[in-house]
Design a protein around this nucleic acid. Structure first.
Lengths: 244, 244
DNA sequence: GTATTTATCGTCACCTTGACAATAATTCGA
DNA sequence: TCGAATTATTGTCAAGGTGACGATAAATAC
């Protein structure tokens, strides 16, 4: 058999992004429709090659912005993990570094006809349905969901799905969508507002919605990074997700 | 994934391994002494280039085995995260995928004079002391420690530091070394033996040690993978680590 | 207005934790 | 050989967190 040359092993490196949001109480993931082979016509995670001189997070943010047409990405972006390089692309070995974006619902610009079309898809529909993702993106999505679920337990990252200010019920809807369970509103309210360094009352209230107005909260300073995004683990003991 | 750009961006890809163990009640990390520039003479994480046709975990295991001279790696190996490629190696952009090994203490073969010397170093000495790791390995080590600490909370992975069979006290020593705290032996015993699907009594006891003989446990089947290594998250509620 | 909806506050039993007493079963040392 | 020391294990108890659910507040819907 042929010997593998001892030359330093170089690989094409891509970044992929699992962008999650909650729309109408459903967890959604951002997917693009591939216009070229392999997997032409299939849905895939947005992503692309890392450019020279770029950091991984940077590349992930750039690719996502390019493919959705948004200027500034909302939400929290973090690295998920790396996959490959063996056997995940029929064209050859490609290493991909997957990322996870937890974001409030944002509109995806329907790009022109020659660009790949990006859109939100309900996660349940992607996993359970006949939709099959390109490459190993189904596995990556699965890992991303598991990460998202567990992050909500012990970090304030659920707030990344909400806007700057939000009600306890909106935050609860995030937990319910990500975990796929119903939570008792009263117990959730007690835990969310009672956990130190989690939520901060803005003093303002919602108006116009059905039912009693709700207090508006924002993330407490201790739960935010300098950039304003939720970061530090503060939920101790964790917000426990019901195990089956 | 997007269309292939004119010049697909390729990078040299390495794997690094943060191998942790507990020796004499102290958390230790496996480091090699670099024999070549850059950072000649400095301590660094073991690692090396990913070869064509290799998976990441495979490459990490191979490199670690090569540099320590052990045949079969004990313990639990998992991916930690990727770093770079920008600005971490003075010779150029290199992407590295860091890994984490939690293992029982194993002897490192002192390799010949021309090979890089691998040895265990107490983590406290590496972090606090004048020892400065090569490249961005100090940051990687820091991330690895944080990962290890949090894994012990909600997974049975502490047992990866022990052998096949172990006493509750040995497991407690692992927690104390990794977390850098003292734990009450009685409360730890209650939690460890009382958590379903965590420990399984072998029916055998220790002999010869000072004090009352201790019962020998192994990981419960539900906490093991097929390979025998601890895997599934079972500690719910978690084994809480004392926060400052 | 009255019904409905949603938010928020309380209550209570149960469970887990942290602190610590008590007992068991061995080795160590005189 | 016999206490002393050491380590393991079982309990006890108060404090705090959780799950289940009643009750009340404050808006919109009809």
């Amino acid at each position: 058999m042929t010997e593998t040359p001892p030359a330093p092993a170089c690989f094409p490196v891509t970044v992929d992004v699992v962008a999650l949001t909650v729309r109408d109480g459903q967890l959604n993931v951002l997917l693009i429709t591939r216009l070229i082979d392999p997997f032409r016509g299939r849905l895939a995670l947005p992503g692309g090659f890392v450019l020279a001189g770029e950091e991984l997070l940077e590349a992930a943010g750039r690719e996502l912005a390019e493919e959705t047409g948004v200027g500034h990405l909302p939400g929290h972006l973090e690295q998920l993990g790396s996959y490959g390089p063996k056997g995940r692309d029929p064209r050859g070995d490609v290493l991909t570094v997957a990322h996870l974006l937890l974001a409030p619902d944002f509109p995806v610009l329907s790009a022109g006809s020659d660009a790949e079309h990006a859109a939100w898809y309900p996660v349940g529909q992607v996993l359970g349905g006949e939709l099959q993702l390109a490459f190993d993106h189904g596995r990556i999505l699965g890992d991303a969901l598991e990460r998202a679920k567990s992050k909500l337990e012990y970090s304030p990252l659920g707030a990344a799905f909400c806007g700057e200010e939000f009600t306890v019920a909106q935050l609860r809807a995030v937990y319910e969508a990500v975990w796929g369970t119903r939570l008792d509103p009263r117990n959730f309210h007690r835990k969310a507002t009672g956990t130190p360094d989690f939520l901060e009352d803005t003093g303002r209230m919602t108006t116009g919605d059905a039912g009693r107005p709700a207090a508006l909260f924002r993330l407490a300073p201790a739960a935010r990074t300098a950039a304003g995004q939720p970061a530090r683990a503060v939920l101790n003991p964790p917000l426990m997700r019901p195990r089956d």
